[in-house]
Amino acid sequence: MSRTRTDDDTGPAAYDAAPFVPEDAGLDALRRAAAGCRGCPLYEDATQTVFGQGDADARVLLVGEQPGDQEDRAGEPFVGPAGRLLDRALEEAGIDRDRAYVTNAVKHFKFTVPERGKRRIHKAPTLREAKACRPWLTAELARVRPEVVVALGATAGKALLGGSFRVSRDRGVLLDLPSDPDGPRVLATLHPSAILRADDREAAYAGFLTDLKAAAKALRGAP
């Protein structure tokens, strides 16, 4: 059953998705509810909510930043170029994506359109928008109960580990989830799209793969 909503605690002005999150709901019910989320203004321009997808009993859960243009149109996370790179790296690292759960810290596509163009250009979500969307991610973590969470990029890292998180400093090592010290360990790395933009893609990809292999090692329980 959903929480009771009032004019004071719901809608874009509140910047809080919590009133839209059904209590004690499974992933399918959460996905249906998320389609109607109005917890921040991003829903106004996005095509649809892009909720997480994958194995409900996954041992590893991967969190990206937000859906991109192709994800926004398809309604599925990581189906564009960054998703294809992620698939390749997961396979090489020994992580089965079909047995993983993949989602984003922010569930709506944020973009800008140049005055003389039609192509929608990705725009990074603000910390306020990521915080507003955090109740959906919290619910996903609670339902899936993974052993390891992989934070893909700065937005995901800050959503999970707090505002002091830095990819350059904290990547590649297992960290405790501040909101649940007895819960899953968190391992941060680059977002796949950052690799696609890198001047030296080969080196960026090698580092990304090393981080994912560390996550795979943790899943195997290796010291």
Rank of each mutant, 00 (worst) to 15 (best):
A159R: 04
A130T: 14
V63R: 01
G11P: 03
R128C: 03
A82P: 05
A216E: 14
G163I: 11
A46K: 02
R97Q: 03
K118C: 07
Q48K: 08
G221K: 14
A188W: 12
D69W: 06
R59H: 10
T4R: 11
A46C: 06
L209W: 13
R32D: 10
D96H: 06
L137A: 12
F165T: 05
A124K: 12
G54I: 02
P181F: 12
K217P: 03
A89Q: 07
R84I: 08
G183P: 04
R185Y: 01
G54D: 05
V21M: 10
A154L: 14
R38A: 15
A154E: 15
E115P: 12
F111E: 09
P135G: 13
S168G: 15
V60C: 04
H122D: 07
P19F: 06
Y101A: 01
P19C: 05
L137G: 13
A74T: 06
A34Y: 04
L152P: 06
P125N: 05
V21G: 05
S2G: 01
D200T: 04
P223Q: 06
L161S: 04
T49I: 08
A124F: 05
D98L: 03
L30I: 08
Y15L: 13
R5F: 02
K158T: 13
P223F: 04
L177G: 07
A93N: 10
A29C: 07
F20E: 07
A56G: 13
N104P: 09
P19W: 07
A33N: 03
R201A: 05
R59V: 02
R120N: 12
H108E: 03
A33V: 04
L61T: 03
D87L: 15
A33E: 00
R220G: 13
L141R: 15
Y15A: 06
R171T: 03
R201F: 00
L219G: 07
D57T: 13
D176R: 15
L177Q: 10
R119K: 14
V50W: 00
